[in-house]
Design a binder for these strands. Sequence first.
DNA 1: CTAGTTTCTGGAAACGTTTACAGAAGTATA
DNA 2: TATACTTCTGTAAACGTTTCCAGAAACTAG
Lengths: 355, 355
Amino acid sequence: MKGIRRLAKELDISIGTVSRALNGHRYVKDATRKRVLEAAKELGYVPNQSGRALRKGTTGVVGFMIETGVKTAIDGETFFLAVFDGVQAVLARRQLDLVALLCSSEEDPYEYLRRMVGRGFVDGLIISATQRYDPRIDLLADQHIPFITLGRSLTDRDHAWYDLDFEALASVSVHRLVKKGHRRIALAVQTDQINFSYVLLASYQAALEAHGIAFDPTLVLSVLPGQADGHAVVREILEMRDRPTAIILGHEAMSVGFYRGLAEAGVRPGRDIAIIGRASPHMQLLSPSLTSFATSLRDLGAALAEALLLTMPDAPKSPNGPVRELWPFELHEGESDALTLKQMQKQMGALRLTR
Amino acid sequence: MKGIRRLAKELDISIGTVSRALNGHRYVKDATRKRVLEAAKELGYVPNQSGRALRKGTTGVVGFMIETGVKTAIDGETFFLAVFDGVQAVLARRQLDLVALLCSSEEDPYEYLRRMVGRGFVDGLIISATQRYDPRIDLLADQHIPFITLGRSLTDRDHAWYDLDFEALASVSVHRLVKKGHRRIALAVQTDQINFSYVLLASYQAALEAHGIAFDPTLVLSVLPGQADGHAVVREILEMRDRPTAIILGHEAMSVGFYRGLAEAGVRPGRDIAIIGRASPHMQLLSPSLTSFATSLRDLGAALAEALLLTMPDAPKSPNGPVRELWPFELHEGESDALTLKQMQKQMGALRLTR
DNA sequence: CTAGTTTCTGGAAACGTTTACAGAAGTATA
DNA sequence: TATACTTCTGTAAACGTTTCCAGAAACTAG
């Protein structure tokens, strides 16, 4: 005899009562509950997931989908893992388990997801790094699976989402650089279908125009996903006839590679060129310090989880509909864009004289 | 009506036959099977995972446990994700799905695992980064869950495992450095309970003794897990009275931080100090090139999966017992240890003269 | 045509839970 | 003590599959 029956037999009690005791049903005598709990621990009994799921129609498991493989930046994973951590912490409090659905290079993400939800494997989903056009959203909406995305996409479904505030990142960066005298401001952005990239590019363009600066497509540096560090495109910049005087790095993984590339060419961030980037785990290694946009990914994860919970069946119906919010960055001022363009040019002059 | 019943009703056929048709049972008329398959696609029917799992006692899902959070190195995740990728590719061919069990900082890994297996959530498990004493192994062995570990541990269970060949890494490194004249060879190793670290340290020690070099504990540089890049300990080395002339980096994440730290102090790898490390995603950024031990993590993942499959119930019983193998590294010679100690010392001399 | 295979199908019994239902036991109120 | 609650427990019916069993149908061989 196995499972709950075994436990019931052992205690000479009905399985119904055992189940109720275990699940915190209110009408169970304290003494009984105590006996059951003790016996359960004693015998190492853990309710069978399949049986429970079958009966309840819910699994108690939430999936966090992360695409890996060539499409994602080298450092991209640490980004998602930080978010994951925050999600897990919140869900744990609600007795929900979180598993990562890592869709590797070989598998079609859409098919993978379809299989997972079709099976009834998870009660809810967090979809990270939405694509510009993301069929996964339609799939989940059609099937009425509770879900939230990290990132928007071109869809008219009104699902729950959080999105990093790249609009602000772009406009603050551009504004800041323009105020320091820069006019030729480059943007390094990853070329893939991730929606983030589109938003960033569009916002950058809008911000430039707001300052009356014509958009120059040659100043948009496309970093291939496989070379997310951006090391490769540094040369490209340095060889331009009319070099940018400032660069905005759109991806956290880019900073180390850029610094390295610049150093090799003898170009010093903050003196010879202004750089604004994103906070990354490797930032401490950068010198001079990088002016960067940071945010608590763990908190973002927690917020995602809370918002997801609101979309789940038993949640109190919120009158506002699903959460749709931009998640703010915080600017950390560093040395990499401290000087004004004028000051930089003077330095350059001084440098030339001593050579 | 839902699920298979709906399908059966639609086709005016018994649910037994539908199930058989879907599962490739041999005694189903071709015409029937075709009808069923078509109707299934038409109605978007996907077998309910819970029902199937309950009846079959197997879930078709394998878990890959990865510890994250503070205990793991910054770059550690990319390591595991590469392995994950390989595992997934192999399992997919066997119609098995892989999910990542990421145990975050807040949760006790053992409890987490216990819950997952107790529930019958997975058919098999891959446990990565085994600890020196790893209770998870006992748990899984006791419960007769098919599993394989990446890394050994101090246990007498004869479970399946692969382990990176740190013995070879240490002995080859030491041998190579000694041959170039080094006697003071430091080892940077992560201080946590991961078994890798112990093996590495022991092998390093053994290799030194094999060359008649006394083990000097001050040459063992303990890198805290939170500062996996090792940037912090570089200073420590440089300030030693009797500096090592060579360093072996035990963790892939260390190379960038070490290079950076050395550069800040004006110490050039390969000229002023010899370095041997491990291949990492950031390696391309290092100059001079790092002599490093590399291995295909994806292939390792594939091998892990194959070995795991052998431990699963339906596998052909192998006469050799569970797989227990060391996974080899491959040495890539770079510039960071190219010179002999003599040559290095000459360079130093030259350098001093020009100063 | 009969008997013996093989191929195919329907019916029903599991798998391990949760929970609706009904009734037993306890407790307060009249 | 009788009545009406509330608290507690046992029984049994789901949940959606797979698979055993038996028997029907289709062949094959005599």
